[in-house]
Design a binder for these strands. Sequence first.
DNA 1: AACCTTCGCAACCGCAAGGAT
DNA 2: CATCCTTGCGGTTGCGAAGGT
Length: 271
Amino acid sequence: MGRTTWFDVDGLRKGEWTAEEDRKLVVYINEHGLGEWGSLPKRAGLQRCGKSCRLRWLNYLRPGIKRGKFTPQEEEEIIKYHALLGNRWAAIAKQMPNRTDNDIKNHWNSCLKKRLAKKGIDPMTHEATTTTSLTVDVTSSSTTSSPTPSPTSSSFSSCSSTGSARFLNKLAAGISSRKHGLESIKTVILAEQPREAVDEEKMMTINMKEKELISCYMEIDETMSIDELPCDDSTSGFVAFDDYSLIDPYRDSVYVSDFYDETEHLDLFLL
DNA sequence: AACCTTCGCAACCGCAAGGAT
DNA sequence: CATCCTTGCGGTTGCGAAGGT
């Protein structure tokens, strides 16, 4: 199975990889390590573009890749992480180190998405399609009507509420780093919003959201040990995503605890 | 047996972010 | 500061296999 082989205008080979090409790539990387994909093909004696080599290595040749059928447990994991992270396949793949993002994405698109839809669950919101979907947005007027938390009713969506998630994440990052006062954080973030997006009503909602976020953030005591962090707590709605960050799926937000101040960690969640 | 449709998956493409110059 | 280059990501496509009629 695969694509037919052809050559582009620069004489670079496209389409299916041969066993000989795979061998050359593996031998070269084993000898010289990763990096400099642009010049790698020439040095490895391959008539491919660097991008193609990189993809082949990451999705197929790299050691430790698990191939073949997904187990029910893996499928459950994908659904769980998709509910939290949306279509961020690379982020999901980081939680499942033996599977590639491409593999996960393919399995989701060809199988899991349809399966959820058949069950009456919206694959994007992970909510029952028969009930009204509640998606938090900075434009929403009410912030007090979060649904009863349950692992399958998350409204963490990467599409319908991208703006609000980005806003809240940046705010959380700003608070977390304590580099700026709240007002300056807000000013910076609002400057990034499209002009028409910041009307008076939205400002009020943002202010309300800000207070809500701060109060939520304060629930995390910096003196807490990792084990004491809220985890799948039906009262708070927090889900401990890893040792240092919490997701509040009902507010499309991520909170990073204060004792971990490397903001790059938060990048995983930025939409 | 022939044809059509769906599935599964490897690979491509365009875009964006970040670093180097 | 601007431009170029590299790397990484997500959406989409192409195509053989499998299944259905």
